[in-house]
Write a protein that binds this DNA or RNA. Structure first.
Lengths: 160, 160
DNA sequence: CCGTTGCGTTAGTCCAACTAACGATATACG
DNA sequence: CGTATATCGTTAGTTGGACTAACGCAACGG
């Protein structure tokens, strides 16, 4: 399997990336993540959105209205960046930002009907993009990949 | 499996990250990569290095001396960034930069004895860090994880 | 000889992740 | 009560990685 590439690429050059580098999980992870990010960002840009938009809308849809700070915790977006994301979403009326009468420090963010519609579109877009990302894997392998990622992430999220 | 976390975490709050978000491979990938990067960067910083240093030194060790442009191709570092990396490495005498007599456009980069020693240290450091990264996985699972990553990356590298 | 290509280098863009600090409000404690 | 402490939304700024543009120079191909 190692020399699968030797089939279509003459190995007469010492140009190839050294094996030591290619096998490090950390490196594979970061490289694949870069490509994945690019794929996702480009796909979402075509749909006039960013990935943070999706994260916020999905969170609102699934868990209901919330303050900005709570949204930050749910989605992992820093609350300093949340401001801008919500500005963009509110500008397009995908989301409503209203002061919380119970706690005047808070804003209550609610997803709008348009927001729900937009979210449905984005869900479709992301399904397709993730399909493209995982294209070389069989369904079983995809599940396993997701499961491995989840376990690793959970571990490092709890140990943070 | 979905509510594995409910075991040690009372689910009376709507704060949890929505499932839809948690299952997207692209998202898992990017989040895990962020944490992995942080782990690696901090670990290497403690050893007074950066990940690009390792990539360059390893490439030199495994494939021999090369021009800067070729190093770029081997490692994936942009040649505009390679300059700075080589400056740092040359400053510490881990690497030697000499004009190529055969092609006066080129610099030939050679790893020094100190460079080799430094590389050995970094290899150890990275072994440990990757162990930490993959801690929750069994050896078989680690192999599989690496294999899945490799296949995905190869696919998207060729389709680039 | 001239156009193209590859080289090293400089500068600068873009974006994500992250920190610091602010004013305003809410909560806890003495 | 009052005062400390914490939380909220917000602004500004830093850092680092990925990436582009353009330069002068050298090599190669006609």
């Amino acid at each position: 399997m190692i020399r699968a590439e030797a089939a279509d690429m003459p190995d007469d050059s010492p140009l190839k990336t050294p094996d030591r580098l290619r096998r490090r999980a950390s490196r594979l992870l970061s490289q694949l993540s870069t490509r994945s990010d690019r794929l996702i960002n480009e796909g979402l840009a075509r749909a006039d959105a960013r990935k943070w938009h999706y994260a916020v809308l999905a969170s609102l849809q699934e868990c209901g209205p919330a303050s900005q700070a709570e949204l930050s915790r749910r989605t992992g977006i820093y609350r300093s960046d949340m401001v801008g994301v919500l500005n963009e979403l509110a500008e397009r009326d995908l989301v409503e930002r209203a002061p919380d009468p119970d706690d005047r420090r808070r804003n209550v963010i609610t997803i709008s009907t348009q927001g729900r519609r937009h979210l449905r579109r984005l869900d479709k877009v992301l399904d397709d993009l993730n399909d493209e990302l995982l294209a070389p894997l069989s369904p079983a392998e995809r599940d396993q990949f997701v499961q491995l990622l989840t376990r690793l992430l959970d571990h490092h999220a709890r140990t943070s």
